[in-house]
């Protein structure tokens, strides 16, 4: 197994499948009397969060605690970090505290890569800038596999602000590794220059992509992008790229609709879609804990 999980590209098909299979075993815990496993007893997992993300932090915290690890939450707010301590100095502090793993969320792309140079333990990327969010991609893949019983050959449309999306980058990598076919759908302004090199097709036309999609994954669109001239108005964006009821009706019978959350209801996704049986949004949250347990176990469970 790998030492760090910095990018979805760190996982080959065998390793990614092992994570998903392990997550399935971890998920069976949820129904047990005692929802705790001793696998990481005596190990310390630090959640180092430079961005507010209660959802992701709680998910990692629950995962680590169910594996009996000691969890230290290190939030950038109200700590020495906000007084300007450098990431490197923070890393050395965590090192001195005996962190076996650091789960890092950071607004700067590549911060986990830097951190991995400065700590001896494992580093798990919990979202870095506009780069990657590999555990989100793993839980998305897990959710698709649970619902549709396979990943290879699935047509997955990822729709919205691809340019700024770490979820999209990780999903493109992982889904490609696992044999799914990804189509990125966005206005041209929200696709990065150089996207042609990604293992994914691109389209500007959501309606053309919907009928052939097994999975539609909607990305969060930040309203402030409008002021940066990425699109003219919320209304126009919602009309061209929002997932509404008529588009949902054109999906194949079995297809599912995903969203990494938090949602802008009425912007990229209509409330009726978010609350429909096709929506996996609540499952994604539950699966997040299992997948993160699997990742922490596989990174930390064996010989260091």
């Amino acid at each position: 197994m790998i030492k760090h999980l910095l990018s979805a590209a760190d996982l080959d098909a065998a390793a990614a499948t092992l994570v998903l299979d392990t997550a399935a075993e971890m998920a069976s815990l949820a129904g047990r009397e005692v929802k705790k496993l001793p696998a990481l007893r005596g190990r310390t997992v630090v959640n180092l969060f430079y961005e507010d993300s209660t959802r992701t932090r709680i998910s990692f915290e629950a995962a680590a605690k169910r594996l009996s690890a000691d969890v230290i939450n290190f939030s950038a707010k109200g700590s020495s970090v906000s007084k300007g301590e450098s990431l490197k100095d923070t890393a050395l502090t965590l090192q001195a505290m005996g962190a076996d793993a650091v789960v890092i969320r950071h607004p700067a792309s590549g911060a986990p890569h830097r951190l991995a140079n400065w700590v001896e333990g494992s580093v798990v990327n919990a979202g870095d800038g506009t780069h990657e969010h590999p555990t989100q991609a793993l839980l998305d893949a897990y959710t698709m596999r649970s619902r549709l019983k396979r990943l290879a050959g699935l047509n997955v449309a990822i729709v919205g602000d691809v340019l700024h999306s770490r979820v999209a980058r990780s999903n493109v990598q992982l889904l490609h590794t696992l044999g799914a076919k990804v189509t990125l759908v966005a206005p041209p302004t929200l696709l990065p220059v150089g996207v042609g090199a990604w293992p994914a097709a691109t389209s500007y036309d959501l309606d053309a992509v919907v009928p052939d999609s097994d999975v539609v994954m909607m990305l969060r669109v930040q309203r402030e992008r409008m002021n940066q001239a990425y699109f003219p108005s919320e209304r126009e964006y919602a009309r061209r790229y929002g997932f509404d009821v008529p588009r949902m009706r054109r999906l194949p019978e079995h297809a599912i609709v995903m969203h990494p959350g938090p949602m802008n209801r009425g912007m990229e996704i209509a409330p009726e879609v978010a609350d429909s049986p096709r929506s996996t949004i609540v499952e994604q949250v539950a699966n997040g804990v299992s997948v993160r347990m699997a990742v922490l176990y596989l990174l930390l469970g064996g010989k260091a």
């Binding site: 075993e25 069976s28 176990y297 010989k303 260091a304």
Partner: peptide
Amino acid sequence: LDITLYRDDLRLQATRALGHT
């Protein structure tokens, strides 16, 4: 009954894949 996560030699070897309970 898969006992992988309860083994006392978990740390002595590379991470083991889980079995199914």
